[in-house]
Write a protein that binds this DNA or RNA. Structure first.
Lengths: 329, 329
DNA sequence: TTGAAAGCGCTAACAC
DNA sequence: GTGTTAGCGCTTTCAA
């Protein structure tokens, strides 16, 4: 028995041609029942399994999708990936994951690698904004968490502006008048949108405020939390991770949340409900977004649509324990 | 300009043969400087990038590794995957991720898919224990988080038994005499080991105890926490997620941790230090384990070793705020 | 219903 | 240093 079992060995074993073997494997055209059985037996006997590489080279697709994200260790992206993988797996695709750490250079490299590996499509959550560069790589792309004005591209995004606006209005109504806002990096679409909502909020309402520049990490929350000398009514954090850090830094200073100060997050990652105090935040349907991005890339691939699908998710304010209730004022 | 740029078009454009093009791309044998330049220019001009599929078919490897894990949305595995991906990427590999949800059938399917896609190696964290079945799939496998006695296989694991033993001894020394232990599923190696340590602990020491059967999730902690009617001195949870759930269930009942009861976890996932109360737990070097598993598969692939590498990590008790201090007794 | 053969894009052995 | 060519394992015409 040769080391490598190919369609050839099966053909020989079954006493048919390789095209016949291919036909029974793919059901691509009718095969006489007895012949089919002979082939199936040979496959079983020799433990044959097809070589997807050779197949892909021939047919021109790989049933493989690439996903570029900043960091899988961030639970936001882990949940997103899970959503995408579940859908893709159900449609017969595999998923290659690539962490970019939000570095444009790395993103470019990853695009090239995925192109070379001939993935059928790319799910892309990152910061690179030179759309032109996506032209010569002729692979369908779905942008995640970023609205693309250019109507050549599909995207899935949630309404960060509206979500933040809703949260801020809720806070205002519950007697929060003095704000500290900790932003994310300005390269990141969602961070810009959330900050923009805050900007317009302070224009509209007479409040005291201060903006601290941070990034989407626990450590950034820790650092920025320490910088807050004069306590506001609420610290509005651009995401949940920052809020965790801020709360921790307050804990070290014996500042009580929400009794002394309210703190809010954004995203509603899995842990925010487990956190103590449970975090008031804005929920993005993260898993769903991953799933829908996968669904879109799939539609693009089977060319079901002659338009470019786009999906904007609404976000929802989730009030928990890290903010004061109006009656507690 | 043809739709698809291959080595052929480059050869034509540069006025050389395709082998010369291949040589400059791979640096596989010396090429005259001027010729090289011509080729490079053509590549640039036509925006050529090689087809990894065709290359792999020819050379017999794909520079792609598969990883099978229960669930990427579990931060333990997300961190593990990040460790693996970082190392693999640095060595030029890509990573295909597969979620199995700890279902043996799904694991089998995933093995087949990865075999068909001709991954060079598989990182495997799962429950399937029929080692024989790994025989006909002739791909190097590194088992993660599971000690394999069969010396045909590499593994990376941490010393769950010792870690749990150390934790229990610490608890005993700090005046915890009545225990509730919430286990993980008995299909999972680490859960069995941690339970085994508890079994031996209660044999050696005169203590009151009760064992609750759970699984490695927050929800399981929530449910099992509610089942605890008579409060012990400490609830020892098989992992951090369970501990979060238990603490939450206690919170609902106004039971204070650690004042009324201590609670411990295992793993020390990223969030355990952010948790409130910060969780006393046992640290596994999760990122490191992912990284080393990747390193091992790489060694296997470049055949640097003529033995089967194996790595056992030690775990470390991390005392935080969810357990009583002895002096608080 | 089946078989022969071309060819997907590439590498590498061989020849010059 | 460079070109020619076989062939990796498969699918898909085309012919029978």
């Amino acid at each position: 028995m040769p080391d490598k079992i190919t369609i050839k060995e099966i053909a020989k074993e079954a006493g048919v041609s390789i095209s016949t073997v291919s036909r029974v494997i793919n059901g691509s055209s009718p095969v006489k029942k007895e012949t089919k059985e002979k082939v199936l037996n040979a496959i079983n006997k020799l433990n044959y399994y097809p070589d997807a590489l050779a197949r892909s080279l021939r047919v021109g697709y790989t049933d493989t999708i690439g996903i570029i994200i900043p960091n899988i260790a961030n639970p936001f992206f882990a949940t997103l990936v899970r959503g995408a993988e579940d859908y893709l797996r159900s449609k017969g695709y595999s998923l290659i994951i690539c962490n970019s750490d939000n570095a444009v250079d790395q993103e470019k490299k990853l695009f090239n690698i995925l192109a070379e590996k001939k993935v059928d499509g790319i799910l892309y959550s990152g910061i690179g904004d030179h759309l032109e560069k996506f032209n010569h790589i002729n692979i369908p792309i779905v942008f995640i968490d970023r609205v693309i004005k250019d109507n050549r591209f599909s995207y899935v995004c949630s309404n960060h502006y509206k979500g933040m606006e809703d949260l801020l209005n809720y806070l205002f109504e519950t007697n929060h008048k003095r704000y500290v806002f900790i932003s994310g990096k300005k390269e990141i679409f969602s961070a810009v949108e959330r900050l923009r909502a805050f900007g317009n909020f302070v224009k509209k309402n007479k409040i005291e405020y201060k903006i601290l520049e941070g990034e989407y990490t626990y450590e950034s929350g820790l650092i920025n939390g320490k910088k807050i000398k004069k306590l506001p009514d609420v610290v509005v954090c651009s995401n949940d991770l920052i809020a965790y850090g801020v709360i921790e830094s307050f804990k070290e200073r014996k500042i009580k949340v929400p009794q002394d100060v309210s703190v809010t997050g954004y995203d509603d990652i899995t842990f925010s409900k487990m956190f103590s105090p449970a975090l008031t935040t804005v929920r993005q349907p993260i898993y769903e977004m991953g799933k829908i991005s996968a669904e879109i890339i799939h539609r693009l691939l089977i060319k079901k649509d002659d338009y470019i699908p786009v999906k904007l998710f609404q976000n929802q304010v989730i009030v928990r324990e890290s903010t004061r209730n109006p009656r507690n004022k």
